[in-house]
Design a protein around this nucleic acid. Structure first.
Lengths: 341, 341
DNA sequence: GTGAAAGCGCTAACAA
DNA sequence: TTGTTAGCGCTTTCAC
């Protein structure tokens, strides 16, 4: 198939009258090689169209320089952006990325991990599926000494690193904002409390209620899969409530948007009747009218930090001193929650 | 790092008192090996925790069994689903997938291709960026004999395969549906005509207008990047028109949804004042009220067919007889376009 | 500062 | 039906 034969270090060596080992070293600026020789080698290699054979190299070094990424789903702005951040770092540092989707299923997640493990990725970047609860499979990875960095939906586990934002504080801030707008009956639409992100946001919400002297009513706490459809469903159930909420904090923007659309269609005014706040600052939050109050999530940065941390761990086994990086989020107040001027 | 040493075919061979080559063959059911021996080999290999070393194998066979995927962006339901389809096939057939995003930029697209080329992927699955026009880089791939399969946003090129739907027909059908609803001034919101998908949908629209005896007004054809923001902008420009359209066909759902939200906010009734139709059947099309008329796009199937075709080409050099697969789409009529009963 | 040589684990042509 | 053997291209230890 591939017609033009690949150029190897042997070919380059022959042209330069050097040994293959010198070429190998020269290509990576090995300190023992004269600077001048290095340069000559690199010039000729480029001219000849040489490209390193990763397989020979992996075989020899027993490291593949690829990273496995397992995420619940790709189809959100947050995830696509986080992955773009990872790509940037890995491209710079000469690593490859293999991405796979767990489709929010714990079972599929294990299948993904297993496939990637068999591809001998050097390490993993993982954001957990909606309902993963059994971490036995991760033990296999740890026992093999394969480093794992969790991001966004993380697990407190062994000595893995986690890259997150302060979801508790974010949940607190956004709920506090609602109480400050005068909301007295604030509903929270969240996800599975097994996942740190939903757990923390929920408890941030609880704390803000508490601080404002509002009682927690567990009918005001709805847990579902945070899809558009769920937003619709919740909107409909709200319409049927005797005593409706005057504020809603949903744990993502997509759900908030679906919910707002449906409520508006039924004549409910946002924010006058019900103030709404989302989470993630997806682009859609600036499309919906009124624009959605939300939390800006540093997606690209999370991706970059996760990739950087993993590679540092791989290269220098550097992860001493901290096992959790918390990035800065930002409360973005827009019209959907502004009851007061 | 990795503590437990890897098991090789030599280890397995020793245990079984066989030669490594027999083990190698047995593992892949080579016809020359007795069925019974094959089984014994596989059992022991599993017990010993053997896993094939892809690098040694790639090095030897000069094929990597990985496929490079380059897409404009990951953050749509369509793309995430298409990729899930590819994953399914490649997992079954023992291939890996490396995915990268061109971010809709022709320049970035070349960078992606180049990185993947250097990773020695066996072949490519590509959906073109918004403005790619220079295909020189693809020539490099072809001259190396690396097969390419385009999907969705394709190029007619050499002997590459393309996996598409009949965008012309889809554009025609959806516009015809609007004319049948009595629309007389139908606007089309499309993308760059360089891309087959937008070109074909546009001409399908033209043909339907023609057939209905409606004149084409080029002020009714808007080209932009089909983002939510663009949907908003177009909605605003419509509000300022003296003579507004009574029907709109947008080339994707996201834009249609943003547009509808904004128009509704300004008191325009959908579909009574303006009928709207989108494209792709994204989940959001069933969230918006009224539900959006659209074209169902067989995303998963496109991914599966693209992956299958590429692998067939890789394995059997099979691509004779057809260079383009057209999958079935489906017009889905919902309330957003139904002016009559 | 450079070279020689062994070997990473697998495959496949050839031999038996 | 199974075994022997020679690499695939690179890295690295050891020698010079």
């Amino acid at each position: 198939m591939k017609n033009s034969k690949e150029v190897t270090i042997y070919d380059v060596a022959k042209v330069l009258n050097l040994s293959p080992s010198t070429v190998s070293r020269g290509l990576k600026d090995h300190p023992h090689i004269k600077k001048e020789t290095c340069d000559r080698i690199k010039v000729v290699a480029r001219e000849m169209g040489y490209r390193r054979n990763k397989f020979a190299s992996s075989l020899r070094k027993k490291s593949t320089e690829t990273i496995g990424v397992v995420v619940p789903r790709l189809n959100s702005y947050f995830m696509a952006t986080a992955i773009a951040g990872m790509e940037k770092i890995t491209n710079q540092l000469g690593y490859g990325l293999i991405i796979s989707q767990s489709q929010e299923s714990a079972k599929q997640e294990i299948a993904c991990l297993s496939t990637l493990y068999n591809s001998r990725v050097d390490g993993f970047l993982i954001s957990l599926a909606y309902d993963s609860a059994d971490f036995n499979y991760f033990n296999t990875l740890f026992s093999k000494g394969i480093p794992v960095v969790f991001f966004d939906r993380v697990a407190e586990y062994n000595d893995c690193m986690s890259i997150v934002i302060d979801n508790f504080r974010a949940g607190y801030e956004i709920t506090k904002h609602l109480t400050e707008q005068g909301c007295k009956r604030i509903m929270h639409l969240g996800g599975n409390l097994l996942r740190n992100v939903y757990y923390d946001r929920f408890w941030g919400y609880r704390r803000a209620l508490d601080e404002a002297g509002l009682e927690f009513d567990d009918k005001m706490h709805v847990i579902n899969d945070l899809s558009s459809q769920s937003g619709l469903d919740v909107a409909r159930s709200i319409l049927e409530m005797k005593s409706r909420p005057d504020g809603i904090f949903t744990a993502n923007d997509t759900t908030a948007v679906a919910l707002i659309c449906e409520l508006q269609r039924e004549g409910i005014r946002i924010p006058e009747d019900i103030a709404v706040a989302g989470f993630n600052n997806e682009p859609v939050s600036q499309v919906i009218k009124p624009n959605l109050t939300t939390i800006d999530y540093p997606a690209r940065e999370i991706g970059e930090v996760a990739a950087t941390s993993l590679i540092n761990k791989l290269r220098y086994n550097e992860n001493i001193g901290f096992s959790r990086v918390v990035l800065r989020h930002r409360l973005i107040i827009r019209d959907s929650s502004l009851k007061k001027g």
